[in-house]
């Protein structure tokens, strides 16, 4: 099967432009992780620096939390991708797309890549917010690029997962339901919020294969200036590739049109 470059570009462009013409979508993408950072991140702001250093290896909890929150919010990005697909089904736009020589697989790819890209809008906003909360950044250009790349891979993986699960869905509420089953377990069983240092063994077992952990630890090593395990980037690439392949096959066969 040949890649359909023209519809790929057209549909991807539509995803991106639609985001920027709809300020609410942009706002809702950015507000939630910001709340995490501002409120949840401030939970330990009065704790003695030595205590924080002991538990988190950082004197400012937000410094520790930022890479984790950016990683978990990629789950929400997946949910939004799934919702925009259901919107296209309900408004008949999916029919307009598919009564052209554009394949269902192409539609899937642009939805996955488009929503993942949309999710990355959070990155500069969140980094700026962290600066305001006093987090210092001493990253090399390579580290910045690797951090963004890791988040992009994570987002592509989760968007693909959501799109695969909701390929036949036409109800607005399905992505929300799916999100509840996926988001909470994956978020809390990762090293995103507290690190896995004090986890019970069964949660460590989940955390060690949880892609959110890889992304959070990679980002954290850049922000805290500790040793970077570059292999995490490889794990994330495998996760993204696998989910993309599954989503492509599932959507090509089972994507509902209306």
């Amino acid at each position: 099967m040949r890649p359909q470059w023209s519809p790929l570009w057209g549909l991807y462009w539509r995803e991106i432009v639609r985001t920027f013409r709809n300020p609410f979508v942009l706002l809702i993408t950015v507000v939630q992780p910001f709340m995490w950072l501002a409120f949840f991140g401030s939970s330990f702001s009065e704790a003695p620096a030595s205590t924080l250093e002991g538990i988190f290896g950082a004197s400012n909890y937000i410094q520790f939390l930022l890479p984790g929150v950016l990683s978990t919010s990629m789950l929400t990005v997946g949910m939004f991708g799934s919702m925009s697909t259901i919107q296209d089904k309900r408004f008949g736009f999916m029919k307009r797309i598919l009564i052209t020589p554009t394949s269902k697989g192409t539609v899937f790819l642009t939805k996955a890549l488009g929503s993942a890209s949309r999710g990355l809008v959070q990155f500069p906003v969140m980094v700026a917010a962290a600066l305001v909360f006093g987090v210092p950044f001493h990253l090399s250009p390579l580290q910045w690029a690797a951090w963004v790349g890791a988040l992009m891979l994570l987002a592509i993986g989760f968007c693909s997962l959501f799109l695969a699960i909701t390929a036949r869905a036409t109800d607005w509420q399905t992505p929300g339901v799916v999100s509840n089953f996926i988001t909470m377990p994956l978020m809390f069983s990762s090293a995103a919020l507290f690190g896995a240092k004090y986890f019970p063994p069964w949660m460590v077992a989940i955390s060690d294969v949880n892609p959110i952990t890889f992304s959070a630890l990679l980002g954290r090593s850049f922000v805290l200036g500790t040793t970077t395990h570059w292999v995490y980037l490889g794990y994330l690439a495998i996760f993204a590739g696998l989910m993309l392949a599954i989503g492509f096959v599932v959507s090509s066969r089972w994507l509902r049109v209306e």
Binding site: Q4, W5, S6, P7, W9, G10, L11, W13, R14, I97, T100, P101, T102
Partner: peptide
């Protein structure tokens, strides 16, 4: 129209 042209690979 641009979008339709892309979908049709014109």
């Amino acid at each position: 129209l641009w979008f339709q042209a892309k979908l049709q690979s014109l």
